[in-house]
Design a protein around this nucleic acid. Structure first.
Lengths: 228, 228
DNA sequence: AAATGTGATCTAGATCACATTT
DNA sequence: AAATGTGATCTAGATCACATTT
C-alpha cells in the first residue's frame, strides 16, 4: 500500500506545470532531484542558506520554527503537492523554519535558479507562485493570531479540526505526532495539551486511544473553536 | 511641513515600476486614483470583498486584524511606499485585515485587474511581487510567533525596537497610537502594557511622556527582546 | 528509556473597579 | 468623556515532581 501510494504520488506533475510551455516544463524537470527520508529525518534546517525548493511527493511533514533551544512552534503540517519554503526563498536568504518528515517521505528538490528564471520568463507561472505564497501567508496569519488570542480549549479544538478537515478529511484519524508536538502545534505545553484532550475525552466530545482519534461531536468542537 | 512632506511622497514612483516598459507603466498609472484620509479613518475593511490595492503615499497606517468584537491584533504599522493587502488579493477574495489611518494619509489605489495583468505579462514585475509578499510573510511569522512565546517585557521591548529601528529610525520618537493600540500591537491588555512601560521608565530604560519616547538603554531593550 | 499522564503548586498577566489626567 | 493609570484580586495555564505505560 505504502509503495503503490508512493508510486502514484511520485508521478505527480509539478505544481503549476500546466501553465508552462513544453521546453520550460522540460527545463524545470531536468533541474530536479529526488530524495527519500525516514520518519524524524530533517529535510530542511532553519537558518541554513536557501538552496533548493522542496516539493513533498509522498508523506506528511511538519514545518516548525525553533524559537530557542527546546522551544518550538509548529506552523503547519504539509501534505504532498505543494512547494515549501517559497517565502523564505524569495523573502530571505536563509530558511525561516525547519521541515521534518513525520513518516517515510519522498521529496523532489527544485533548483532555485531555474524556478526564479521561470517566474521571470512566464508570467502565468509567476502568478501561480504569487497565489501560493499569498495563501500561505493568510494561513499563517489566521493560525498564529488564533493561537495568540484563543484560550486552550479553543486552540485544541482548532488542531482537531485541522487534522479532521484539512489533513485527513475524516472524523477518524491517526495523528503521527507526539503529545509534545501536538502541544507545539497548539502553542502550549505537553501537560496542558494532555489535560485538555483528556477533558474532551471525558466529556465524550472525542474518543482517543494513543494516536487514534475520533470526533464524536463535530458540533461541539466547532463551537469550542469559534468561541475560543 | 506636513504639506511639503506629502508633496515629496506624492511624487513617489509606484513600487516596481522600474521593471516596466513605458506603455506598461502608463497603463498602471492610468488605473490608479488618489484618496486623502484623516486620522482614524478606515482605509480598507476586513472581510470586505477585495477591489483595489492601496499604496500609502504619505502618513502611517495600522494593519489590524479583528479577532472578535473589541478584540484586535495589530499586525504591523505600514509606512509610505509599499503595496498593502497583496496576499489578501491573491490568496483570498476578501481583505484579511483592516487598515486605518494613524494620521493624515494619502493613498493611491491601484486597479487589481491591471495589476494582475502586469504580473502575467511582465515576469520581472511578477518576481518583485513575489519578493514583496514573501517578505511580508516572513515578517508576520516572525512577529506573531514572537508574540506567542515571549513574556510581556520581551514583547514590549520588541515594539519599542520596532518603532525605534524600523519606523522612526531614531532613539527618540512620538508614537501615534493609544495605549490600547500599543497593547494590541504587543498582544496584551492596556493595563498590562501600561504597567510594563511604567516599569521600563522606573528602571530608567526609557523616558516616556505621553506619546513621546526616548530609549535610554538600547542595550537593555535588545537584551529584553532577545531573552523574551 | 522515552513518551504519556497526573497531582500539587506557582505565577504572569487578565480582569475588575476606580482615580486621575487630558 | 475619553484616555491613562493604579491597586486588589483572580485564574488559566505553566512548572515541577513523579508515576505509569509503551
Amino acid at each position: 500500500m505504502n509503495q503503490s501510494n508512493e508510486n502514484i504520488l511520485d508521478s505527480l506533475s509539478l505544481p503549476f506545470e500546466s501553465v508552462l510551455l513544453p521546453d520550460e516544463r522540460d527545463k524545470l524537470y531536468s533541474s530536479t532531484n529526488k530524495v527519500e527520508y525516514s520518519k524524524r529525518d530533517i529535510i530542511i534546517k532553519q537558518s541554513a542558506r536557501v538552496s533548493e525548493i522542496p516539493l513533498i511527493l509522498s508523506g506528511l511533514v511538519k514545518i516548525s520554527r525553533e524559537m530557542r533551544r527546546g522551544k518550538n512552534v509548529i506552523l503547519r503540517i504539509a501534505q504532498p503537492g505543494s512547494y515549501l519554503g517559497l517565502s523564505s526563498i524569495f523573502g530571505s536568504d536563509v530558511y525561516e523554519y525547519s521541515v521534518f518528515a513525520l513518516e517515510n517521505v519522498t521529496v523532489r528538490f527544485i533548483d532555485i535558479e531555474t524556478f526564479s528564471w521561470l517566474i521571470k520568463k512566464n508570467g502565468l507561472f509567476g502568478m501561480e507562485v504569487v497565489k501560493q505564497i499569498s495563501a500561505d501567508n493568510i494561513f499563517n496569519i489566521n493560525r498564529l493570531s488564533s493561537l495568540l488570542y484563543k484560550q486552550l480549549p479553543g486552540r485544541v479544538a482548532d488542531i482537531i479540526l485541522y487534522f479532521s478537515e484539512d489533513i485527513f478529511k475524516s472524523e477518524t484519524f491517526s495523528i503521527p505526532l507526539t503529545r509534545q508536538e501536538l502541544a507545539e502545534l497548539a502553542g502550549t505545553t505537553k501537560e496542558s495539551l494532555i489535560r485538555t484532550l483528556s477533558e474532551f475525552k471525558h466529556d465524550k466530545i472525542i474518543d482517543m486511544n494513543r494516536n487514534s482519534f475520533k470526533v464524536n461531536s463535530m458540533h461541539i468542537i466547532k463551537t469550542l473553536s469559534r468561541l475560543g
